[in-house]
Write a protein that binds this DNA or RNA. Structure first.
Lengths: 200, 200
DNA sequence: TTGACACTCTAACAGTCGTTAGGTATTATT
DNA sequence: AATAATACCTAACGACTGTTAGAGTGTCAA
């Protein structure tokens, strides 16, 4: 990891825990192991660190959304038990590559903190936590409806329910205090229980 | 409003928007219109302001919970259309006296921000945003089940759904950027649409 | 061997931070 | 009238803030 990457990594950890303003340049440099002037060789000022993190995050989710656009009509399609495909693809993109991903999880926390006084953060937060996920769920469940898993007339209601559950569980387990392995397990367990239990 | 109350009011507005550490004593005093030394006449230090806000909030929700404990088996019970009672009591306690209440709404935002590096805040946040609401919904829907609105066997599933919807909508509309009248209306509209639409 | 470049350092700047000592009015109590 | 309490003030403290000028390093191409 280069010094620049290390600075961004340390800064994200600190920003997402205490907020941008509350973290000082000296806090970051102390943890990275460099002098303050060295940081200004890599970034033009403090805000430039935050901007770089946002740019990196935007690139990351852009990549995810492109992959979802290109996703197959039904992933592998080996097992044919009900809803299996939907769980797989949502697990893969929403959980493993987004909510559980260390970088993305910390960025979501940072957006949660900064959204109240930063309009750019607020817009990005709304898009990545509400608008985009809803669109993804809609796409997945529409696909499943064409496969005959359930009537197309029910898609809207099912997507609303699924989105509500996923959002609640995300805030309950993945954005509440430290993200432990236990919380990830509890989150996955609840999601799968809902799928099996026919609550969706 | 006394000077002490004004300090707490201004501090809460600033803390809930930018976070505790990012707000300075001079920021607060400038807005209140006093000198810094005057603030130290009313509070022993900066943390004392935060502690006072937390104490006030705890008292507030304690009062709400006691009122719910003492609530009648069925409020007024004049109209008998399905689910009418549940909506009324939840509107009254959860929305008007909690989520929409200016003081509580700002305290929730503050807890959202501070929970990641303050264990007391995290515990209070979990209790007031997840544990307590779930218990309240459970109590209300159990009561409705005994009235025959729906089978008792369905109570658990219904409460899970209701809690998920309410939590999602709260984060989507009431804890996302500025709390406008439009957002309150959109929130209420979605909640009532879910009740009428039989999605619950 | 020289020069250019990438990277890190020392040392300091002006401004802001939380906090405090000590003074001054106004009001209530004796 | 004297005393005490309440609520505010001026002025400053040492520590910390983001940021910068300028001086080394080491590596590589000419």
């Amino acid at each position: 990891m280069t010094t620049k990457e290390k600075i961004m990594d340390v800064a994200l950890h600190m920003f997402s825990e205490r907020g941008y303003e509350a973290v000082s340049i000296r806090d970051i440099c102390g943890e990275v192991g460099i002098k303050e002037s060295t940081l200004y060789y890599h970034f033009k000022n403090k805000m430039d660190i935050l901007d770089s993190l946002i740019a990196k995050f935007k690139e990351h989710i852009e990549g995810l959304l492109i992959h979802i656009d290109e996703m197959p009509q039904m992933p592998s399609g080996k097992t044919k038990k009900k809803n299996a495909g939907s769980t797989d693809i949502i697990d893969s993109y929403m959980m493993d590559s987004y909510l559980f991903d260390p970088f993305c999880n910390l960025m979501i926390r940072l957006m949660m903190i900064e959204q109240f006084h930063n309009e750019e953060m607020r817009a990005l937060y709304e898009k990545t936590m509400f608008t985009d996920p809803y669109d993804i769920y809609l796409r997945v469940f529409r696909m499943l409806a064409t496969k005959g898993t359930f009537p197309e007339s029910q898609v809207d209601a099912i997507v609303r329910r699924y989105h509500a559950y996923m959002t609640m569980l995300t805030y309950r387990y993945l954005l509440n205090g430290e993200l432990t392995e236990e919380k990830k397990k509890a989150y996955k367990k609840e999601v799968h229980a809902l799928m099996k239990g026919g609550v969706i």
